[in-house]
Design a protein around this nucleic acid. Structure first.
Length: 474
DNA sequence: GCATGATCATGC
DNA sequence: GCATGATCATGC
C-alpha cells in the first residue's frame, strides 16, 4: 500500500472507517467511475473488487490484516431479506487453515487471531436478480469480539488444533465447534491437504464464523448498537502480558432484548473449562432428581405448558423467559428426550415441515435438512421412574458424524426426487433405517400444502428415527 | 412393542 | 393463522 495514492489514511482507523462509511446505502456502481462497470461488473470475487476498486489495494492472502498498519481486516458478507428483516446469507470465511503450521502456535499467535482480531465488516444486501456492482451496502462496522465470545472462540480454535494434533484433520467438522467453525473450502474432494500427524489427506478447511453468529452482529449493526470489549478480560483469555490496545473508544454494552447469556462474565469459568463443560456442569447437581425435585430446588414457577421440560432446562442454565444467547449465536439446538422406564425411546424427533415448493429447488449444501442435522445438538435426557415421574438422566452435546450425514443425504435426495415427480406415497419410512424418515404433521389430516404442480398434499415433516437417537445417547 | 398416521398446545 | 415441539391413537 502506498499511502499517498490512497483516498484515506491507512495508518488511522477512523479515517479508514469513515471512508468505508461512505459506502453505506450505496452500491459500487454509485461510488465508482462508470468505466469500471464494463470491466468488472458481475464477474465474481465481490470482496476482492471492493478491496481493489474502492479501497485501492491489491487483494492478498498475506498473514497480516489487510490494513496492516492498524491491524484491521476487511470483510464483505452478504445479507438477505426475510419477512422479519435481514439475516446473514452465509457464513463468514476467514483464512485457510494450514494444518502443517497452525498446531505449532497458541491462540494468541495463531494465524486466525493475528489476522482477524479486529474486523471491518461490510454487509451488503444480496439480491438474486442484481449484478454485484448493484448490491447495496447496509451495514458498515468495526467489530471486535466481546470477551465472553472470545473465550468461546479460543476454545473452538483449540479444539480444531487438537484434532490436527491427533492426526484427525480429516474428521474435523463444522458442527464440532461453537462460534468459530472450520468450514470446507474448495470445490470438491480434490481440494485435499496433507496433515502432519497422519497419512490421510484431509479436506481443505478455513476458519469461519457461523451464519447465526453473524445475525447477532447484524442485529447490533441495524440498531446501531456498539459492543463493549473488556480489555482486561482479553488479556486473561489470551494469556498475554502485553495489553491489547483499544482501537476506538466509543463502545458500550450489548443489550439484545430476547437473548440472555448463560455466562455473564469470563470469570465464571474455572481454569481450563470450555463453554460446553460449563453447561454440563450446571446440570450435574440435578442428575438423578425428579422433575418436581428440580422445580423445588431452583424455585421454578410451575407451568402447564407442553414444553415445560424445555423451560425447566433453560431455568437450570439460569435463563428465564428468553432464548439462550450462546445457543442462538452458535446455532446449538437443545432437544429434550424422554425415555420410558425400561430405557426404550418411544417417540422419534420431529423437525420442520417439508416445504414442497422449496425443496425441489434446493441443493443439499444449502438445504433445510442439511442445515438442521449439521447443527450442534444439546440433548437433555430424562427417564421415567416407577411412579412415572421424569428423572434427569444425563446431558450431552452431539454432532452427527459425517458418515451419518451421508445417509441423511441419501434420504433427502430420495425425498426431493419423489416430491419432484409428484409421488407423495412412498417416502422413506422409519423401518427403512435411513436415520431419518418422513411422516405427516399437520393440524389434522385435512391440513394441506400446495405442491409444484398446484395440487394439495398433506403436510409432512422431517423426523429423526427414535432408535437412532437412542443409539446416540447411549 | 413397534410403525405409522393423526392431532394437540403454545407462541409468534 | 400457522409452524413447531410434543404426544396420542391405531393396527399389525
Amino acid at each position: 500500500m502506498n499511502n499517498s495514492s490512497l483516498p484515506y489514511d491507512d495508518s488511522n482507523i477512523k479515517s479508514i472507517v469513515d471512508y468505508a462509511n461512505l459506502l453505506l446505502n450505496k452500491s459500487l456502481s454509485d461510488v465508482l467511475p462508470k468505466e469500471l462497470d464494463s470491466e468488472f461488473k458481475g464477474k465474481g470475487g465481490f470482496g476482492q473488487k471492493v478491496e481493489k476498486l474502492y479501497f485501492k489495494y491489491e487483494p492478498n492472502s498475506k498473514p497480516e490484516p489487510d490494513f496492516y498498519k492498524v491491524g484491521v481486516e476487511l470483510k464483505t458478507s452478504p445479507i438477505k431479506k426475510i419477512k422479519k428483516g435481514y439475516v446473514s446469507k452465509e457464513r463468514l470465511v476467514f483464512n485457510i487453515i494450514d494444518f502443517e503450521t497452525e498446531h505449532k502456535e497458541k491462540f494468541s499467535t495463531s494465524s486466525f487471531w493475528k489476522k482477524n482480531q479486529l474486523l471491518l465488516l461490510l454487509f451488503y444486501l444480496h439480491e438474486n436478480d442484481k449484478l454485484d456492482f448493484d448490491y447495496i451496502f447496509k451495514i458498515v462496522r468495526l467489530w471486535q469480539f466481546p470477551s465472553t465470545d472470545l473465550k468461546i472462540i479460543k476454545d473452538d480454535w483449540e479444539l480444531i488444533v487438537s484434532k490436527i494434533k491427533q492426526g484427525k484433520a480429516h474428521e474435523i467438522s463444522e458442527g464440532d465447534t461453537v462460534y468459530l467453525g472450520a468450514c470446507t473450502k474448495g470445490a470438491n474432494n480434490l481440494s485435499l491437504r496433507s496433515q502432519p500427524f497422519s497419512e490421510i489427506m484431509a479436506m481443505q478447511r478455513a476458519f469461519s464464523l457461523k451464519s447465526k453468529y453473524l445475525n447477532f452482529i447484524i442485529e447490533k449493526g441495524l440498531k446501531n448498537e456498539v459492543v463493549a470489549v473488556d480489555y482486561k478480560e482479553y488479556d486473561i483469555i489470551l494469556n498475554n502480558n502485553n495489553t491489547v490496545e483499544e482501537p476506538l473508544a466509543a463502545y458500550k454494552r450489548l443489550n439484545l432484548d430476547d437473548l440472555e447469556p448463560i455466562v455473564k462474565s469470563v470469570s465464571e469459568y474455572e481454569a481450563g473449562e470450555t463453554f460446553e463443560q460449563l453447561v454440563i456442569k450446571k446440570f450435574n447437581p440435578f442428575i438423578g432428581l425428579t422433575e418436581s425435585e428440580i422445580i423445588k430446588k431452583i424455585n421454578f414457577t410451575e407451568t402447564k405448558a407442553k414444553n415445560k421440560i424445555n423451560i425447566l432446562c433453560k431455568a437450570i442454565l439460569g435463563v428465564t423467559n428468553k432464548k439462550i444467547e450462546e445457543f442462538e449465536k452458535a446455532d446449538i439446538l437443545m432437544k429434550t428426550i424422554k425415555l420410558e422406564k425400561s430405557g426404550s425411546l418411544k417417540e422419534s424427533m420431529s423437525f420442520g415441515q417439508i416445504q414442497y415448493k422449496e425443496i425441489v429447488n434446493e441443493d443439499w449444501d444449502q438445504s433445510y435438512w442439511f442445515d438442521t442435522i449439521s447443527k450442534r445438538f444439546f440433548f437433555v435426557v430424562f427417564q421415567k421412574n416407577d411412579s412415572k415421574q421424569l428423572v434427569l438422566k444425563k446431558v450431552l452435546f452431539w454432532t452427527m458424524p459425517n458418515k451419518d450425514i451421508e445417509i441423511a443425504k441419501e434420504f433427502w435426495l430420495d425425498t426431493k426426487k419423489k416430491i419432484k415427480s409428484n409421488d407423495f406415497e412412498h417416502f422413506i419410512k422409519i423401518s427403512d433405517k435411513k436415520i431419518c424418515h418422513v411422516r405427516p404433521k399437520g393440524k389434522n389430516s385435512r391440513d394441506m400444502m400446495e405442491t409444484i404442480t398446484g395440487s394439495e398434499e398433506k403436510k409432512k415433516c422431517y423426523w429423526i428415527n427414535s432408535n437412532y437417537i437412542k443409539s446416540v445417547i447411549n
